[in-house]
């Protein structure tokens, strides 16, 4: 990979040159400030990955991350925060600004090797799939690629507060778990009758519908600290600060109301009526990386089961009414 490392400490840059030269088939260029890095990125779309320090004069890492996301060719470039800042508020700010991963200094060489390997695979996959972003009628962006859209396949949603891609969310949850930052819980919401909706509309309409639900989710979670991602199959997984402090039925009602107010339509003018269900929340505890990710799967499974249960209950209600 072609990597750009940005850090105001020349020693770190030298250390990275030594280590990255040793751990893989990567080339490294360096910048000592955010403005210098952004100027290098504006020159040409030549970096596959950006390593960003957090605390820097003039522009901090979060500001650089936000700025580089607006540059041509860098809307999907993996950004890894490489920082000594270990408090949760910095981790949250980094992922919300568009970071893909977060590594604390001092870093272990083996850890850096593994993370860069994973990032390299992501870069290759996105390049092979020809991933690009398309604007939706609501003014947001969603990723599209060469492969046909499958219901289970997650895609990226941009420009909605608190909504990140699912790879970043997985890294975020792993980071909280590894760092023993246990103040958050994970839950998911799932769109009911999603298979039927998927069959009913074009792939792009389906993506626009999901983006609209993301917007309603973001508005409903409002001022609460949260990070959410689309996980595929009409489900969003959300990490919120605090453990089980939500009134989930009330939250679900508010979200469904927000969705109704959007008055979604497909491009042929058909009104799209959809409702969501919320699954059970789990608190983030210390777990190995893999087990931490199981939390996300459990959250999604719980929401999908609740969606099926709610639809069945509705069917039973109508059936009972029809036979009464």
């Amino acid at each position: 990979m072609r990597i750009l490392a940005v850090d105001d400490d020349p020693f770190i840059l030298e250390l990275l040159k030594e280590i990255i030269g040793h751990i893989g088939d990567h080339t490294l260029e360096t910048a000592e400030s955010g403005p210098e890095a952004l100027a290098m990125m504006r020159e040409a779309n030549r970096f596959d990955c950006v390593l960003l320090d957090f605390q820097m004069p003039v522009m901090n890492g979060v500001e650089v991350c936000r700025a580089l996301r607006t540059l041509d060719g860098y809307d999907q470039t993996p950004v890894v925060m490489l920082t000594a800042m270990s408090e949760k508020r910095y981790i949250d700010a980094a992922f919300l600004a568009g970071a893909t991963d977060y590594i604390n200094k001092p870093f272990e060489i083996s850890d850096l090797r593994v993370r860069l390997g994973v990032i390299g695979s992501l870069v290759d996959a996105r390049r092979d799939n020809g991933m690009t972003f398309s604007a939706t009628p609501s003014g947001h962006r969603t990723s599209t690629d060469n492969a046909p859209l499958a219901l289970h396949k997650p895609f990226e949603i941009r420009d909605i507060d608190g909504v990140v891609d699912v790879v970043a969310l997985e890294n975020y949850v792993s980071k909280l778990s590894r760092s023993r930052l246990f103040g958050s819980s994970v839950f998911a919401i799932s769109i009911r009758r999603i298979e039927q909706l998927f069959m009913q509309v074009t792939p792009f309409d389906f993506q626009c519908m999901i983006v609209d639900v993301a917007e309603a989710l973001s508005d409903t979670l409002g001022e609460r600290n949260f990070i959410a991602a689309y996980a595929g199959s009409g489900s969003f997984v959300c990490v919120v600060e605090g453990a089980k402090i939500y009134n989930y039925p009330e939250f679900t009602d508010s979200l469904n109301l927000a969705i109704q107010r959007l008055e979604m339509h497909s491009s042929d003018g058909t009104r799209l009526r959809l409702r969501v269900s919320t699954g059970q929340a789990s608190r983030i505890m210390w777990q190995s990386g893999t087990t931490a990710l199981d939390l996300l799967s459990h959250a999604v499974n719980s929401a999908e089961q609740e969606a099926v249960r709610a639809e069945k209950q509705l069917d039973d209600f109508w059936y009972a009414g029809a036979t009464a």
């Binding site: 020693f11 770190i12 320090d53 605390q55 000594a84």
Partner: peptide
């Protein structure tokens, strides 16, 4: 804070 930040970020790696 800035000096300690630099030490914190590099000492462990060497």
């Amino acid at each position: 804070e800035s000096i300690l930040h630099k030490i914190a970020g590099t000492a462990g790696s060497v």
